[in-house]
Protein backbone atom coordinates (compact mmCIF):
# COMPACT_ATOMS: atom_id res chain seq x y z
CA UNK A 1 0.00 0.00 0.00
CA UNK A 2 2.98 2.24 0.44
CA UNK A 3 3.09 3.33 -3.15
CA UNK A 4 -0.62 3.95 -3.30
CA UNK A 5 -2.20 7.21 -2.23
CA UNK A 6 -4.38 6.87 0.82
CA UNK A 7 -8.03 6.23 0.02
CA UNK A 8 -10.62 8.68 1.29
CA UNK A 9 -14.43 8.50 1.37
CA UNK A 10 -17.04 11.19 1.96
CA UNK A 11 -20.57 10.39 2.93
CA UNK A 12 -23.68 12.38 3.64
CA UNK A 13 -26.43 11.33 6.09
CA UNK A 14 -29.17 13.54 7.60
CA UNK A 15 -27.84 16.99 6.84
CA UNK A 16 -28.48 20.01 4.74
CA UNK A 17 -25.61 19.50 2.34
CA UNK A 18 -23.72 22.46 3.63
CA UNK A 19 -20.88 20.25 4.76
CA UNK A 20 -20.42 18.92 1.22
CA UNK A 21 -20.38 22.52 0.20
CA UNK A 22 -17.67 23.14 2.75
CA UNK A 23 -15.46 20.60 1.05
CA UNK A 24 -16.04 22.27 -2.26
CA UNK A 25 -15.30 25.56 -0.54
CA UNK A 26 -11.75 24.44 0.00
CA UNK A 27 -11.39 25.86 -3.53
CA UNK A 28 -7.87 25.47 -4.87
CA UNK A 29 -6.87 23.71 -1.67
CA UNK A 30 -8.99 20.81 -2.82
CA UNK A 31 -6.46 20.21 -5.53
CA UNK A 32 -3.82 19.69 -2.90
CA UNK A 33 -6.11 17.18 -1.30
CA UNK A 34 -6.91 15.30 -4.45
CA UNK A 35 -3.25 15.25 -5.31
CA UNK A 36 -2.46 13.62 -2.00
CA UNK A 37 -5.36 11.20 -1.72
CA UNK A 38 -7.49 8.93 -3.73
CA UNK A 39 -11.21 9.65 -3.30
CA UNK A 40 -12.90 6.29 -3.53
CA UNK A 41 -16.44 7.19 -2.52
CA UNK A 42 -18.27 10.55 -2.65
CA UNK A 43 -21.90 10.12 -3.72
CA UNK A 44 -22.58 13.81 -4.02
CA UNK A 45 -19.81 14.42 -6.53
CA UNK A 46 -18.71 11.16 -8.04
CA UNK A 47 -20.46 8.12 -9.34
CA UNK A 48 -19.80 5.28 -6.94
CA UNK A 49 -22.22 2.64 -5.80
CA UNK A 50 -22.70 0.94 -2.51
CA UNK A 51 -21.55 -2.30 -4.12
CA UNK A 52 -18.23 -0.65 -4.93
CA UNK A 53 -17.68 -0.03 -1.30
CA UNK A 54 -18.83 -3.48 -0.34
CA UNK A 55 -16.27 -4.87 -2.69
CA UNK A 56 -13.43 -3.10 -0.95
CA UNK A 57 -11.28 -4.85 1.57
CA UNK A 58 -12.19 -4.15 5.20
CA UNK A 59 -10.14 -1.30 6.54
CA UNK A 60 -8.86 -0.35 3.14
CA UNK A 61 -10.19 3.19 3.18
CA UNK A 62 -7.77 5.35 5.15
CA UNK A 63 -10.41 7.77 6.36
CA UNK A 64 -14.12 8.35 5.87
CA UNK A 65 -15.56 11.80 6.47
CA UNK A 66 -19.21 11.35 7.32
CA UNK A 67 -21.46 14.32 7.71
CA UNK A 68 -25.06 14.39 8.84
CA UNK A 69 -26.93 12.70 11.62
CA UNK A 70 -28.34 9.21 11.44
CA UNK A 71 -32.07 9.14 11.33
CA UNK A 72 -33.06 6.19 9.09
CA UNK A 73 -32.11 2.62 8.36
CA UNK A 74 -30.28 3.35 5.14
CA UNK A 75 -27.98 5.80 6.87
CA UNK A 76 -27.40 3.33 9.62
CA UNK A 77 -26.51 0.63 7.16
CA UNK A 78 -24.20 2.86 5.16
CA UNK A 79 -22.25 4.19 8.13
CA UNK A 80 -21.80 0.67 9.45
CA UNK A 81 -20.47 -0.35 6.07
CA UNK A 82 -18.07 2.57 5.94
CA UNK A 83 -16.91 1.87 9.46
CA UNK A 84 -15.99 -1.63 8.45
CA UNK A 85 -14.10 -0.49 5.42
CA UNK A 86 -12.29 2.44 7.02
CA UNK A 87 -9.29 2.84 9.22
CA UNK A 88 -10.50 6.14 10.57
CA UNK A 89 -13.93 7.69 10.71
CA UNK A 90 -14.27 11.41 11.15
CA UNK A 91 -17.64 12.83 12.13
CA UNK A 92 -17.78 15.86 9.91
CA UNK A 93 -19.86 18.84 10.98
CA UNK A 94 -22.34 19.54 13.72
CA UNK A 95 -24.97 17.05 12.60
CA UNK A 96 -22.80 13.98 12.79
CA UNK A 97 -20.91 15.36 15.77
CA UNK A 98 -23.90 16.45 17.85
CA UNK A 99 -27.07 15.77 15.89
CA UNK A 100 -27.27 19.28 14.56
CA UNK A 101 -30.36 21.03 13.34
CA UNK A 102 -31.97 17.76 12.18
CA UNK A 103 -31.54 16.62 15.74
CA UNK A 104 -34.18 19.10 16.89
CA UNK A 105 -36.58 16.52 15.47
CA UNK A 106 -36.00 14.67 18.74
CA UNK A 107 -38.67 16.87 20.25
CA UNK A 108 -41.02 14.86 17.96
CA UNK A 109 -41.27 11.31 16.62
CA UNK A 110 -41.95 9.68 13.31
CA UNK A 111 -45.70 9.89 13.63
CA UNK A 112 -45.84 13.56 14.45
CA UNK A 113 -43.24 14.43 11.84
CA UNK A 114 -45.10 12.52 9.11
CA UNK A 115 -48.32 14.03 10.23
CA UNK A 116 -46.92 17.50 9.90
CA UNK A 117 -44.97 16.90 6.69
CA UNK A 118 -47.62 14.90 4.89
CA UNK A 119 -50.85 16.27 6.33
CA UNK A 120 -50.90 19.47 8.27
CA UNK A 121 -48.14 21.73 7.08
CA UNK A 122 -49.55 24.68 5.09
CA UNK A 123 -47.55 23.82 2.01
CA UNK A 124 -48.73 20.22 1.90
CA UNK A 125 -51.02 19.22 -0.95
CA UNK A 126 -51.82 15.58 -0.35
CA UNK A 127 -55.55 14.92 -0.90
CA UNK A 128 -55.14 11.13 -0.61
CA UNK A 129 -53.26 11.44 2.60
CA UNK A 130 -50.40 9.32 1.34
CA UNK A 131 -47.51 8.77 3.68
CA UNK A 132 -44.22 7.00 2.87
CA UNK A 133 -44.44 3.22 3.00
CA UNK A 134 -41.43 1.12 3.64
CA UNK A 135 -42.54 -1.59 1.27
CA UNK A 136 -44.65 -1.52 -1.85
CA UNK A 137 -45.41 -4.35 -4.27
CA UNK A 138 -45.77 -3.00 -7.81
CA UNK A 139 -48.31 -4.40 -10.24
CA UNK A 140 -45.56 -6.29 -11.92
CA UNK A 141 -44.77 -7.95 -8.67
CA UNK A 142 -41.61 -5.97 -8.04
CA UNK A 143 -40.99 -5.01 -4.44
CA UNK A 144 -40.01 -1.44 -3.75
CA UNK A 145 -38.58 -0.44 -0.41
CA UNK A 146 -37.82 2.78 1.38
CA UNK A 147 -35.57 3.02 4.40
CA UNK A 148 -37.21 2.95 7.82
CA UNK A 149 -37.58 6.40 9.29
CA UNK A 150 -36.67 6.29 12.97
CA UNK A 151 -38.36 8.01 15.85
CA UNK A 152 -35.06 9.43 17.01
CA UNK A 153 -32.13 11.17 15.38
CA UNK A 154 -28.71 9.85 16.31
CA UNK A 155 -25.29 11.35 16.32
CA UNK A 156 -22.81 9.37 14.35
CA UNK A 157 -20.98 8.09 17.40
CA UNK A 158 -24.20 6.67 18.81
CA UNK A 159 -24.31 4.31 15.85
CA UNK A 160 -20.69 3.58 15.04
CA UNK A 161 -17.32 4.09 16.58
CA UNK A 162 -15.97 7.51 15.66
CA UNK A 163 -12.29 8.44 15.72
CA UNK A 164 -12.38 12.21 15.38
CA UNK A 165 -14.81 15.03 15.18
CA UNK A 166 -14.66 18.06 12.96
CA UNK A 167 -17.12 20.42 14.53
CA UNK A 168 -19.15 23.21 13.02
CA UNK A 169 -22.12 23.93 10.92
CA UNK A 170 -20.32 23.65 8.64
CA UNK A 171 -16.69 23.00 9.64
CA UNK A 172 -14.60 25.94 8.52
CA UNK A 173 -11.99 25.56 5.89
CA UNK A 174 -8.96 26.01 8.09
CA UNK A 175 -10.06 23.25 10.42
CA UNK A 176 -10.71 20.88 7.56
CA UNK A 177 -7.32 21.55 6.08
CA UNK A 178 -5.53 21.15 9.42
CA UNK A 179 -7.38 17.90 9.99
CA UNK A 180 -6.54 16.49 6.58
CA UNK A 181 -2.92 17.54 6.89
CA UNK A 182 -2.69 15.94 10.30
CA UNK A 183 -4.16 12.72 8.98
CA UNK A 184 -1.81 12.67 6.03
CA UNK A 185 1.16 13.36 8.23
CA UNK A 186 -0.01 10.93 10.85
CA UNK A 187 0.15 13.64 13.50
CA UNK A 188 -3.18 12.93 15.05
CA UNK A 189 -4.23 13.60 18.60
CA UNK A 190 -5.60 10.81 20.73
CA UNK A 191 -8.71 9.06 19.55
CA UNK A 192 -12.04 10.74 20.19
CA UNK A 193 -10.66 14.27 19.99
CA UNK A 194 -12.64 17.15 18.64
CA UNK A 195 -10.35 18.83 16.17
CA UNK A 196 -10.77 22.36 17.44
CA UNK A 197 -9.44 24.27 20.50
CA UNK A 198 -10.85 23.19 23.83
CA UNK A 199 -11.74 26.68 25.02
CA UNK A 200 -15.03 28.40 24.61
CA UNK A 201 -15.71 31.00 21.98
CA UNK A 202 -15.44 34.02 24.29
CA UNK A 203 -11.72 33.31 24.32
CA UNK A 204 -11.55 34.36 20.67
CA UNK A 205 -14.42 36.77 20.58
CA UNK A 206 -13.54 40.37 19.96
CA UNK A 207 -16.48 41.47 22.07
CA UNK A 208 -15.34 39.76 25.23
CA UNK A 209 -13.69 42.84 26.68
CA UNK A 210 -16.87 44.84 26.31
CA UNK A 211 -18.48 42.81 29.09
CA UNK A 212 -19.48 44.91 32.08
CA UNK A 213 -17.96 44.12 35.46
CA UNK A 214 -21.07 42.27 36.46
CA UNK A 215 -23.25 40.67 33.85
CA UNK A 216 -26.90 40.89 34.81
CA UNK A 217 -29.86 40.24 32.62
CA UNK A 218 -33.18 41.95 33.26
CA UNK A 219 -35.03 40.78 30.15
CA UNK A 220 -34.10 38.47 27.35
CA UNK A 221 -34.34 39.81 23.81
CA UNK A 222 -34.34 37.89 20.57
CA UNK A 223 -32.00 39.25 17.91
CA UNK A 224 -34.78 40.72 15.78
CA UNK A 225 -36.38 42.47 18.71
CA UNK A 226 -33.59 44.99 19.21
CA UNK A 227 -31.22 47.05 17.27
CA UNK A 228 -28.02 45.24 18.00
CA UNK A 229 -24.83 46.97 18.96
CA UNK A 230 -22.17 45.46 16.74
CA UNK A 231 -19.39 45.79 19.25
CA UNK A 232 -20.89 44.94 22.58
CA UNK A 233 -21.06 41.41 23.95
CA UNK A 234 -24.46 39.99 23.17
CA UNK A 235 -25.04 38.82 26.70
CA UNK A 236 -24.53 42.37 27.86
CA UNK A 237 -27.32 43.33 25.46
CA UNK A 238 -29.68 40.72 26.91
CA UNK A 239 -29.37 38.53 23.83
CA UNK A 240 -28.70 34.86 24.25
CA UNK A 241 -25.25 34.06 22.95
CA UNK A 242 -24.13 30.44 23.32
CA UNK A 243 -20.52 31.46 22.84
CA UNK A 244 -19.44 30.91 26.44
CA UNK A 245 -20.72 27.33 26.29
CA UNK A 246 -19.44 26.63 22.82
CA UNK A 247 -16.07 25.41 21.66
CA UNK A 248 -14.03 27.96 19.74
CA UNK A 249 -12.44 27.45 16.37
CA UNK A 250 -15.07 28.90 14.08
CA UNK A 251 -13.23 32.18 13.89
CA UNK A 252 -16.38 33.74 15.36
CA UNK A 253 -18.07 33.93 12.06
CA UNK A 254 -21.56 34.56 13.44
CA UNK A 255 -20.37 37.22 15.82
CA UNK A 256 -18.59 38.97 12.97
CA UNK A 257 -21.89 38.89 11.12
CA UNK A 258 -23.48 40.57 14.14
CA UNK A 259 -25.37 37.47 15.18
CA UNK A 260 -24.92 35.72 18.50
CA UNK A 261 -23.38 32.28 18.61
CA UNK A 262 -25.89 29.45 18.42
CA UNK A 263 -23.53 26.79 19.62
CA UNK A 264 -22.79 24.77 16.49
CA UNK A 265 -19.31 23.76 17.69
CA UNK A 266 -20.77 21.99 20.66
CA UNK A 267 -19.48 22.03 24.21
CA UNK A 268 -15.91 21.84 25.43
CA UNK A 269 -14.55 18.50 26.58
CA UNK A 270 -15.29 19.10 30.26
CA UNK A 271 -18.98 19.68 29.67
CA UNK A 272 -21.41 16.80 29.66
CA UNK A 273 -24.43 18.58 28.29
CA UNK A 274 -24.16 21.84 26.41
CA UNK A 275 -27.75 22.94 26.91
CA UNK A 276 -27.89 22.27 30.64
CA UNK A 277 -24.48 23.81 31.15
CA UNK A 278 -25.44 26.95 29.31
CA UNK A 279 -28.70 27.10 31.22
CA UNK A 280 -26.80 26.94 34.48
CA UNK A 281 -24.64 29.84 33.40
CA UNK A 282 -27.34 31.93 31.83
CA UNK A 283 -29.93 31.55 34.58
CA UNK A 284 -27.35 32.66 37.13
CA UNK A 285 -27.16 35.99 35.36
CA UNK A 286 -30.88 36.76 35.66
CA UNK A 287 -31.01 39.94 37.62
CA UNK A 288 -33.46 39.25 40.42
CA UNK A 289 -33.81 37.40 43.69
CA UNK A 290 -37.55 37.62 43.69
CA UNK A 291 -39.54 34.59 42.63
CA UNK A 292 -42.14 36.48 40.66
CA UNK A 293 -39.67 38.68 38.89
CA UNK A 294 -37.53 35.69 38.01
CA UNK A 295 -40.59 33.98 36.52
CA UNK A 296 -41.18 37.11 34.51
CA UNK A 297 -37.68 37.16 33.08
CA UNK A 298 -37.82 33.42 32.44
CA UNK A 299 -40.99 33.98 30.47
CA UNK A 300 -39.10 36.25 28.10
CA UNK A 301 -37.08 33.21 27.04
CA UNK A 302 -39.37 31.78 24.41
CA UNK A 303 -37.94 28.38 23.63
CA UNK A 304 -35.18 27.47 26.07
CA UNK A 305 -34.79 23.86 25.00
CA UNK A 306 -34.68 24.72 21.30
CA UNK A 307 -32.28 27.57 21.95
CA UNK A 308 -29.86 25.86 24.31
CA UNK A 309 -29.85 22.55 22.41
CA UNK A 310 -30.13 23.99 18.91
CA UNK A 311 -27.27 21.82 17.65
CA UNK A 312 -26.75 19.30 20.38
CA UNK A 313 -30.03 17.66 21.32
CA UNK A 314 -29.23 14.09 20.17
CA UNK A 315 -25.83 14.27 21.85
CA UNK A 316 -27.26 15.62 25.09
CA UNK A 317 -27.79 13.52 28.17
CA UNK A 318 -31.51 13.17 27.61
CA UNK A 319 -31.14 12.90 23.83
CA UNK A 320 -34.78 13.51 23.13
CA UNK A 321 -38.17 14.41 24.46
CA UNK A 322 -39.86 11.72 26.53
CA UNK A 323 -41.43 9.52 23.92
CA UNK A 324 -44.80 9.12 25.59
CA UNK A 325 -45.30 12.85 25.86
CA UNK A 326 -44.78 13.63 22.16
CA UNK A 327 -48.08 14.79 20.73
Amino acid sequence: MSTEKPKVAFYWCASCGGCEEAVIDLAEDILKVTAAVDIVFWPVAMDFKKTDVEAMEDGSIAVSFINGAVRNSEQEEMVNLLRRKSGLVVAFGSCSHLGGIPGLANFWNRKTIFNSSYHTSPSTDNPEGTIPQEKHIMEDGKELTLPRFYDTVYTLDQVIDVDYYLPGCAPPKHLIMTAITAILEGKLPSKGAVLSPNKSLCDDCGRNDSKPEKLAIKAVKRPWEVEMDNEKCFLAQGIICMGPATRSGCEERCILGNMPCRGCFGPTDQVYDQGAKFLGAFASLLDSDDEEEIEKIVNTIVDPAGTFYRFSLPSSILRRKRMETVK
Partner: peptide, 26 residues
Protein backbone atom coordinates in the same frame (compact mmCIF):
# COMPACT_ATOMS: atom_id res chain seq x y z
CA UNK B 1 -6.27 28.36 33.04
CA UNK B 2 -5.83 26.02 30.10
CA UNK B 3 -9.59 25.81 29.81
CA UNK B 4 -10.90 29.17 30.96
CA UNK B 5 -12.03 31.34 28.10
CA UNK B 6 -12.30 34.42 30.22
CA UNK B 7 -16.02 34.73 29.60
CA UNK B 8 -16.37 36.33 33.06
CA UNK B 9 -19.72 34.74 33.78
CA UNK B 10 -18.38 33.50 37.08
CA UNK B 11 -16.87 36.83 38.13
CA UNK B 12 -20.04 38.63 39.14
CA UNK B 13 -21.58 35.56 40.73
CA UNK B 14 -19.13 35.07 43.56
CA UNK B 15 -20.68 36.38 46.77
CA UNK B 16 -17.22 36.87 48.22
CA UNK B 17 -15.67 38.63 45.21
CA UNK B 18 -13.04 35.92 45.12
CA UNK B 19 -12.87 35.89 41.32
CA UNK B 20 -11.14 38.47 39.21
CA UNK B 21 -10.69 38.68 35.49
CA UNK B 22 -7.14 39.08 34.32
CA UNK B 23 -7.45 41.06 31.13
CA UNK B 24 -3.87 40.49 30.20
CA UNK B 25 -4.08 36.72 30.37
CA UNK B 26 -7.68 36.72 29.24
Amino acid sequence: EELCAGCQICVGLCPFTAITYDKEKG
